[in-house]
Design a protein around this nucleic acid. Sequence first.
DNA 1: CATGAATGAGCCTTCATTCAT
DNA 2: CATGAATGAAGGCTCATTCAT
Lengths: 196, 196, 196, 196
Amino acid sequence: MTRTAGSSGKKTLAAIREAGLDLIHEHGFEAMSLRQLATRVGLQPGSLYNHIETKQDLLFDLIHNHMVTLLASIDDALDGIEEPIERLKAFIAFHLTYHIERKREVFIGSSELRSLEPKNRRKIVALRRDYENRLCEILDRGAAKKLFKIDDTRVSAYAILAMLTGICTWYDPKGRTNRQQLIDIHTRLVLQGVLK
Amino acid sequence: MTRTAGSSGKKTLAAIREAGLDLIHEHGFEAMSLRQLATRVGLQPGSLYNHIETKQDLLFDLIHNHMVTLLASIDDALDGIEEPIERLKAFIAFHLTYHIERKREVFIGSSELRSLEPKNRRKIVALRRDYENRLCEILDRGAAKKLFKIDDTRVSAYAILAMLTGICTWYDPKGRTNRQQLIDIHTRLVLQGVLK
Amino acid sequence: MTRTAGSSGKKTLAAIREAGLDLIHEHGFEAMSLRQLATRVGLQPGSLYNHIETKQDLLFDLIHNHMVTLLASIDDALDGIEEPIERLKAFIAFHLTYHIERKREVFIGSSELRSLEPKNRRKIVALRRDYENRLCEILDRGAAKKLFKIDDTRVSAYAILAMLTGICTWYDPKGRTNRQQLIDIHTRLVLQGVLK
Amino acid sequence: MTRTAGSSGKKTLAAIREAGLDLIHEHGFEAMSLRQLATRVGLQPGSLYNHIETKQDLLFDLIHNHMVTLLASIDDALDGIEEPIERLKAFIAFHLTYHIERKREVFIGSSELRSLEPKNRRKIVALRRDYENRLCEILDRGAAKKLFKIDDTRVSAYAILAMLTGICTWYDPKGRTNRQQLIDIHTRLVLQGVLK
DNA sequence: CATGAATGAGCCTTCATTCAT
DNA sequence: CATGAATGAAGGCTCATTCAT
């Protein structure tokens, strides 16, 4: 590979991240070896350490990056929408779209929390809580305006999030149902579920 | 100590299974070592092989056992109930209860599919499909009787299952919401979601 | 190798210790690899861990063992001798003999202190102090009886110990000077040095 | 900062040498990594190779440099002194002073001989022999003049050198005994030891 | 059945060294 | 001269598994 001064490092790191997402998604973090990763990127195992601190660090980096992006994106998606029902619809559409497009990140972000060191896990869990809160607020405001009937906000939010997130365990872009249909189906299920 | 012939072995295997569920749930299958497992059971690592074939075999055994029990139990729970709405309610109550009581098995059964050898995985996936079909049938029959409005049976079933299964990632028996409340909340969410 | 029940483990550990002494003496602790050690003993590297905890542990074990033996032996050698000059002679003869016969242990015990973890090092340094104190006491008693003239007990003890210990860096059993001659030469040097 | 042509390089090399002495003295040659060394000097590891050939080369350079200086210095110190007893006193005073002031060099020079490649080791051992010979000559001449009683010149020389060199394993400039006192103590021990 | 000891493969990581920029 | 990125070898250690006792 030819190196273009200064850019090679960043490109390699990007390739490591990309391959890392793939491999962790396929085999799980514990089951992925840095040898595999290095081979996939075209490096010797030791060379990875020019770009990452440790294997654990790579995992944290991937998940953290994902969470930060997720938070920024949801705020973007909800920006300017005030009406609770519309906000809920926007949330659903956004969540599904994002989870379809970033299956790997999302999957890793929830299934590999367990592999994070306590300190790292706490940071991620806090960010995830932030995201959950976006939905809780929508539900609460809808309930306040007598639009929704919510018995327990957090339980309901978890239930809805679980439903919407489930998609990334089976979604196949080549499947028979297209993206918009999926959004419609889920929107109907959730919305009817919470409406008064 | 003299050993009651034939009984010690079964007790040991039961202890291995139990400890296996704990450890895989805590650390994941790949991250659990047979040394840990042996220690937890009070054996030397090598002695495990008097009770299990391989580590992979233990995993399959645990998941398979869980799936078979799950299927038998759901049939039991739905037995005698004909009316679609009642059947759906029964399904929801059963699924939640079972998933609350067997967090470990359920969690492992979905998160460690990845660690199963292809042949084993196929067997489990088939059983899971059987279980999903129970819900699909309920939805289909309810739709046939014009009670439910279902755009896509399998997608809806996955969505509902994801929602109901999500509980085992956060349920805490000492939490503020009791089991019946959880069933009520989820029943309302799901039922309203699918009703015409 | 045939295994005689129960004894194989201890023999293997003894072989590991022996080879460890050799290799550390030859190459230094840091420079000795467990692969080398395993090869020398006829094992796979991982099998060493059936007998030792860690590489560090092996080092500590070797040095600690040496120090404990050294202390027991000097007390034995001095037992029953009261007169300071005779005690000093006995100390010199013992020290030289022991250092000639256990070149490796002695050498490692002083040159690899640096490779011990702080906690381990502290334990060894304490034992070494005990040994030094045996000489200090002899010098002090001799001075009290006006037999010796000692300006500073500890400095003198260190000087004498350094002189006597030096032998294990160059002693060659096939050399031209025999053991008794060496003892005589050193006894004269030390004794004249401290006599009033 | 602009670099004064040709001077920066030498300063860097001096810094590398200095840091090398420190690190080898602290951790031993094998245990010191060029990464540590580079960090200490404020360089990247690769940059060291603009100043040194190899790690082994650096070690040889440090030890060789030390030996050459040592030889030049002892000749300086003995220059003009003819009388054997006075020469021996001068030797003792010089050796102690030098070893106190260059603890690191001296320590490395003896403890890391083992890490030198055979060819390099041979060169150093030859220089060391030269130094030992200075003492042997003094002893021999003293014996010839019936001032000393020496049974075996080389053994005696080794014993004396070991005693005097031992100081650099424990000497602490902030300790309770000052330099002159140390010289006096050792001079008495050695001189009495060899006098007829 | 359980044990202790062995195997062989593999793990993450560090190292000295090289070299295009 | 310095840097950043690469190499290839090796490091200590853990693992699932086997098997004589």
